[in-house]
Design a protein around this nucleic acid. Sequence first.
DNA 1: ATCTCTGGCGAGTAGA
DNA 2: TCTACTCGCCAG
Length: 799
Amino acid sequence: MKFRGWLLDVDYIVENDRPVIRMWCLDDEGRSAVIFDPTFEPYFYVVPYGDVPIASIENISDVVGGEVLKPVRVDVVDRKNFGDPIKCYRIFTRLPRDVPYLREQAAKFGDVREADILFGVRYIIDRRLIPMGGIEAEGEPVEVEYAGTGMICNRPKAFAREDEPGLKIMAFDCEMYNPHGMPGAKTDPIVLISVKTGLEQRVFEAKDNDDRDILKEFIRYIQDYDPDVIVGYNQDSFDWPYIQDRAKHHKIKLSVSRDGSTPISGRGGIQKKVKLIGRLNVDLYQVAARDVDGIKIKTLDNMADFLGVMKKEDRVNIPGAQIAAYWTDPAKRPTLIQYSMDDVISTYGLAKELLPLQYEFARMVHEPLDNVSKMGRGRQVEAYLAYIAYEHGELIPSKGGSVETYAGGFVFEPVKGLHKSVASLDFSAMYPSIMINYNISPDTVCLPGEEKDCSAPAPEVGYRFRKAPEGFFTTILKGLVHHRIALKKKLATMDRKDREYRFLDIRQKTIKILTNAFYGYTGWAAARWYRRECAEATSAWGRFFIKKANDIAIEMGLEVLYGDTDSLFVKYMDGKGLREKVREFIDRVKKELPLDMDVDNYYRIIFFTESKKRYAGLTEKGEIVVRGLEVRRGDWCGLAKELQSEVIRIILEEENPGKAAKYAKDTIRRVREGTVPLGELVIHKTLTKSVTRYESAQAHVRAAEKAMELDMASEVGNKISYVIVRGPGILSDRAYPAEMFNKFKDGRLYTKDRTYELDSDYYIDKQLIPTAMRILGYFGYTEDELKGRSVQGTLEAFF
DNA sequence: ATCTCTGGCGAGTAGA
DNA sequence: TCTACTCGCCAG
């Protein structure tokens, strides 16, 4: 029989003491299928130390549980080790689980390589497969109870396709009974489980606080609908572990995986990972945390609002701590049900927005979707490298090296104040271009004595790289750059609303992300292809070129106001002739330096603070661009950010500092009067480690401790939301979790049994004044003026 | 188990 | 009051 469809995942089973590769697929009609390949054998390499006879390798053995493990066979193969041709032994084992034992024995004779490549990934690499891509196979049909089609085949073939699979996606979300704050899986049942698919949405509701039945219904629902992809928001660290505990409590088997097995939890750690066999379990929070920027507090409702999936004002929102109260009150329960529904609808909507990029990453780096969605950027780059290494005959290096820091980008001292008619320019793809230009790659690092065939030494650090042959990274980067140029060219001829446009645009974006991560990857101590010399030389050339560009600009009569790593902000006399001068400048830079430079923006007016990395400007198009200032930060209260944002707007657009100062004074007065909503005064900071590990008292840590005393969630990695109240002690003593208050009126915060007073002086002196003064200080305003008497100012005096 | 990198700002703590 | 240091977040 023949099969044509999509490849979703690859794993293996053990049959008759032999591994059998299992490919989870979809056919072109969207029906599930599995393809087995019993012919693939586990193996790893050993690069011998000197002359090691093959017999020594063939004879390695270990005894595990009374059983003797030996290599199935050993062959001699030609490979490359960082570009150098070498002969090495390839050791085949009977089962993947034998590898850890035999690698230890083999390590006595040489350098063990690729022993830690997972068997499924190994198969994808060796058979050149494309997860989320096309697959064709021919073989014998076989009966399987957990998929529509089953077949046995040993040479599946991948093919690229331009359409997307008809995946069955299911979103789910749970609400737990939490009368004391944090729900505990031992005692507190799940009261609602909501699900949404392409067909319907529904909520399973517990009867009499007993979740036995809804757990069973949920399991049955998954079995019946049989989704290919399961999405949630934080389900790996919250919903799945909780469901697992509850199922265990009721002695129910959580058969939600496609083969009838239960979810597999990644062992411990801070970031938990959950694997479902045959279904792709994607935690959209992990995806958002890595791939979405432009939003600070990545809660489900914020994320859905930000991506236009569900506006906050159009949905029910219930504070986490009140779920039990809503559940218990018959009048309020329907609201809770709607809340749960809104959550699952948001989650499903997020999946529609976020998954296409993940599909492309899966295809690009050749890792199954669920894996790639949980990997850090470095590991994604590495998966891609591992796939390419195979076709180059390059051995995949072993992990890691020692952490050593090195110098990065150069930052110019800003010319503080307001400037009119300014252009910002930057080198396009500076680091990748430098790496390509100087053939900077882990396999081209020049050793002492071979300098004659090498590039010029990198400035400051002196590293050289061989001119030939082309490095492993260089080839890959060139390929990526060319591919992206071709895509951009094609996109330029297409209609933006076209379905294919979206598809190709995501592809070029994926390439860009991956390309830009290569430089950082080479300086990452835990990388397999870690070569600090590469990162050091790349950033050194970068510093050299931005300084050279600065010299050229000055020589041409441009005034350089600021620059950071790969960018320069320039102005020309009174602004007339700027564009012409900038064109000339770019031409000269391109002629004299091996890099491209482009205009990023023209600013009508721009304000540089006296600090690096903090500025705000108004572009010719009328857009306000802010960098580094508190407006951009998630750890200042909303009111302070709003104030600074408005001050910036008034200064840049209306050029009226007096009005900005008045706005600041009004804001300060509102805080004194206690008329600002509490939400505007909450400060959010991440708890980055367990509370006991902090060396000094931090406000958010103390707030987290107080939250835990009240049985409210404060886990490592969470954002802690707190407010500052009046009272004795240092600031952190007076930081309280915002959720503990159920009422805020006239500057007073109420809990069930206590009243606190908001520390309005803290908000005025430490939040509002500093953010406003960051800009207004330049116009001669003082703290006292903003807090009290009125002063007029004009902009003219400051040019 | 986790992890792309360095440069940089500014608030707050802790100790002298 | 001064300074060194910790901490979190942001620019590129």
